[in-house]
């Protein structure tokens, strides 16, 4: 089995209203050193071994898991040894 970790964030330059609100909260808690906050999504996919695994993950990200109009994504694929 393989574990695929997918990270989706808003593209640089796209205003992130949630990130902005959280940054404001951190500042009001006196963490003045926080320069910027971006909020995204984290997903885990458990996948069987398959051909063109990376290509398929790329396709899934592009077609469904992220919206390429406003979001960037990256992923990590790691083999999971059954216990």
């Amino acid at each position: 089995m393989y574990k695929v970790k997918v990270y989706v964030t808003l593209k640089a330059g796209v205003l992130d209203p949630q990130g902005k609100a959280v940054k404001g909260a951190l500042h009001s808690m006196d963490y003045k050193e926080v320069q910027d906050v971006t909020i995204g999504k984290y997903m885990e996919l458990m996948m069987e071994k398959t051909e063109n695994m990376e290509e398929k993950v790329e396709e899934m990200c592009h077609r469904l898991l992220a919206n390429p109009v406003i979001e960037d994504y990256r992923y990590e694929i790691e083999e999971v040894v059954p216990q």
Binding site: L10, V14, L15, D16, P17, A21, N67, V69, I70
Partner: peptide, 8 residues
């Protein structure tokens, strides 16, 4: 695309 409203 749509994002969350400015004021959340």
């Amino acid at each position: 695309a749509m994002k969350r409203n400015r004021d959340l």
